[in-house]
Amino acid sequence: MIVGDSKPLEEILSMIEGRDKVLVLGCRGCVTVCNVGGEKEVGILASALRISRKKAGLPPTVEEMTLERQCDPEYVEELADVAEKYDAIVSIACGVGPQFVAERFRDVAVFPGINTTFIGGALEHGVWAERCQSCGNCLVHNFGGLCPIARCSKSLMNGPCGGSASGNCEISPEVPCVWDQIVQKMSAMGRLQELEQVWPNKNWLTARDGGPRKRVREDLKQ
């Protein structure tokens, strides 16, 4: 899933300063699962914003709405009748949400209420870790199912580097060295010799380095 963090309340307050009618807009997709942008978080943020407005003696018009997804125009369309009545829409979906809403409703000021951080998964309740950098050409099967692109600090294809120590990455004792894990895993599976293959430079054109990406599926397109 796409994982995010709430922006500091102070930052959101300064974004919407001077704007009377505010809508806090959640999304039932990834951000609901990582507890940062679902219906519940919409309620919490909206309540905090109302407290702030009441304290300042301002009209506390902060309304709440949560869409099935903000990354699909058909759901964003549900805002059609109401979007224009707000002076600010704070989207707490991933970065796609505020963009889709802003593209559809050109006269409405849209603000991101969360910082989109990475593609990852939950290690336990309340703990998430990065697992993929969407490089556009998945190779994890060569590394025991562990991604060296997303999980090695240097995205090394031929690791580990000289900084790997006691299973940790040289950037911090808190960060496991994925190359140490790859070697352990491949050894345990009796496939260590596969790591003798030297990988040529990865072609990053399939990743973000090739410019913004777009997929067209002729079989699905209408």
């Binding site: 500091p8 309340l9 102070e10 307050l13 919490i44 905090a48 407290i51 702030s52 304290k55």
Partner: peptide, 8 residues
């Protein structure tokens, strides 16, 4: 923490 951010 929320209250603190709101100056309460």
């Amino acid at each position: 923490k929320v209250l603190e951010s709101l100056g309460i």
